[in-house]
């Protein structure tokens, strides 16, 4: 996890196409420029970055079920709740599931835990847009490989 680069996920634990379900893990870094401002002397992970963590987790799931044919971009966040504080060094586990697969959009439900403690949850809406270029699509696929995403199960 590198907050300043919006690299919110460390690895995929499981991606189940049939169940429309995904689980990722990440460890909050001990140091980050983000913590210099949020807050000075009291490093606390911003709630918006917890939402981003869920958005990325569920975004990968949307990419998976659509066969990496387009880019899911976050279009809406509903019922977002930040239930617990997240500090440097904490381990986060994020689960996502698909609520609805529409035509050109998808709705997912994300939830973060640290151990057994609920940290955050939200309903996320994605628009599916064409990849801006073949190079960008390759970038996404390369990135997925680096994170050990089970590409062969999903890519069309």
């Amino acid at each position: 996890m590198r907050l300043e680069y919006f690299q919110m996920l460390d690895r995929f634990v499981a991606v189940k196409a049939d169940e429309r379900w995904i689980k990722t893990e990440s460890k909050v870094p001990m140091e980050s420029p983000v913590f210099e401002g949020h807050f000075p002397g009291y490093p606390l992970m911003p709630g918006v970055l917890l939402i981003e963590n869920m958005a990325q987790t569920c975004g990968w799931l949307v990419s998976a079920i659509t066969g990496f044919t387009g880019l899911p971009v976050l279009a809406g966040v509903k019922n977002a709740k930040v239930r617990g504080a997240v500090f440097p060094g904490m381990d986060l586990s994020t689960e996502g599931s698909i609520v609805h697969e529409g035509s050109g959009f998808a709705i997912a439900q994300g939830a973060i835990k640290s151990g057994d403690t609920a940290i955050a949850d939200a309903q996320l809406t994605y628009r599916l847009i064409p990849y801006p270029s073949p190079e960008f699509q390759n970038t996404m696929v390369t990135w997925a490989k680096q994170l050990d995403f089970p590409l062969q199960e999903f890519r069309k």
Binding site: A75, G76, H100, G102, S103, F105, T125, R127
Partner: peptide
């Protein structure tokens, strides 16, 4: 268009 996604979701359901 964003609100229409919510409407489409509700209609689909």
């Amino acid at each position: 268009s964003l609100d229409f996604l919510d409407i489409a979701f509700a209609i689909d359901k």
